[in-house]
């Protein structure tokens, strides 16, 4: 019997190693052959010898452990490898795509947070019919599948003359006159996908805020403040909303993960050139190095968001001791 004693850092390192290893394993466990995609046009009529030449050239025929050590030592040097299907450094591909995903995710999350907090707080604060409507809307919106909403928006707003852009993040051939024109163009392209993603998030945030505000309202210090005759609006802002931000902060990590997954579908529907779409295409093309790099970025983003959530939680809530999220 082996006795394992693992410290906290031990668990963290184990987690990291396991994630990295799985990033290596999962793409290779998928049925399919990257060489076929590399051949592109020649694949249809390619004789087997051609495939073998290609596999040898990329080291795809090397023993798995050799590929694994190459991958790991590359990571230690900060080298993410070379994308088979795109013929670019993986780092360069991701650096190219990440800003768009961050823009889309950031705008969607901000919009969803502002709207969701407002909706949730208001419906909890006012109560009565507004509460029923507010909660009802939140629950309903929360239940709608994002890709479905995206398609409906596409069919309604994009497929007609003068409609909103149906694809991409900007008009690549536009030759903008000014920075303002460029910003406007990017904003127009952002409307539909951001709306879709924001709708996917807003219900959840509204419900969280609603529950938190409700709970805070029952706390003695709020009741006391109310008893002292503090104005409603100040009370809401000073005591209630501040506390309501807590679960929202705790949720940040989950939301980041959700966006990494959810934005694949949304980016696919709108051909938005972000990490989600790139990962989907890499899966289709069995582009191992790009998949490994992309997964790593997504995993790191989720870890970072979790850490940020913990920090934020600690700062917002004096009761929480030392980031126990």
């Amino acid at each position: 019997m082996i006795r394992l004693t693992l410290s906290r850092t031990g668990v963290f390192l184990l987690t990291l190693w396991a994630v990295l290893t799985l990033n290596f394993l999962i793409p290779r466990l998928m049925p399919g052959d990257p060489a076929l995609f590399l051949l592109g046009d020649a694949a249809e009529t390619a004789p087997p010898a051609m495939l073998e030449t290609l596999r040898a050239r990329y080291g795809l025929d090397a023993p798995a452990w050799e590929q694994y050590t190459a991958y790991m030592s590359g990571l230690l040097r900060g080298d993410l490898g070379y994308s088979l299907a795109r013929r670019q450094e993986v780092g360069a591909v991701l650096a190219d795509k990440l800003p768009w995903t961050l823009l889309l995710g950031g705008v969607s999350f901000t919009a969803a947070a502002v709207l969701g907090v407002a909706l949730g707080a208001l419906s909890a604060w006012r109560g009565g019919r507004l509460e029923i409507v507010g909660v009802g809307v939140s629950v309903a919106v929360n239940a709608m599948p994002a890709f479905w909403v995206g398609m409906l928006l596409l069919a309604t707003f994009a497929a007609r003359p003068g409609g909103l852009p149906a694809f991409g993040a900007y008009t690549p051939w536009a030759g903008y006159d000014s920075a303002a024109a460029e910003a406007l163009d990017v904003a127009r392209h952002l409307i539909l996908p951001a709306t879709t993603l924001a709708l996917a998030l807003v219900g959840d945030i509204a419900l969280l805020t609603h529950a938190a505000v409700r709970e805070t309202m029952g706390e003695t210090y709020v009741m006391a403040a109310r008893g002292k005759g503090l104005r409603e609006r100040d009370l809401l802002r000073r005591h209630v909303l501040r506390n309501a931000m807590l679960p929202l902060a705790a949720r940040l990590g989950v939301v980041a993960g959700l966006m990494a997954g959810g934005s694949t579908l949304v980016e696919t529907v709108f051909s938005y050139p972000g990490v989600g779409l790139t990962m989907y295409q890499a899966v289709i093309a069995r582009d191992f190095p790009l998949l490994q790099g992309g997964f790593l970025v997504v995993a790191l983003a989720v870890l970072a968001a979790n850490a940020a959530a913990g920090l934020l939680y600690g700062r917002l809530d004096p009761r929480a001791k030392g980031g126990a999220a």
Binding site: P172, F270, S271
Partner: peptide, 20 residues
């Protein structure tokens, strides 16, 4: 000639209809 890349066929058709 300008060749914009549109992954989704539906989006390409929508772009055609809207004159993009």
């Amino acid at each position: 000639l300008i060749f914009p890349i549109i992954n989704d066929t539906n989006a390409a058709m929508a772009a055609l209809q809207s004159g993009q």
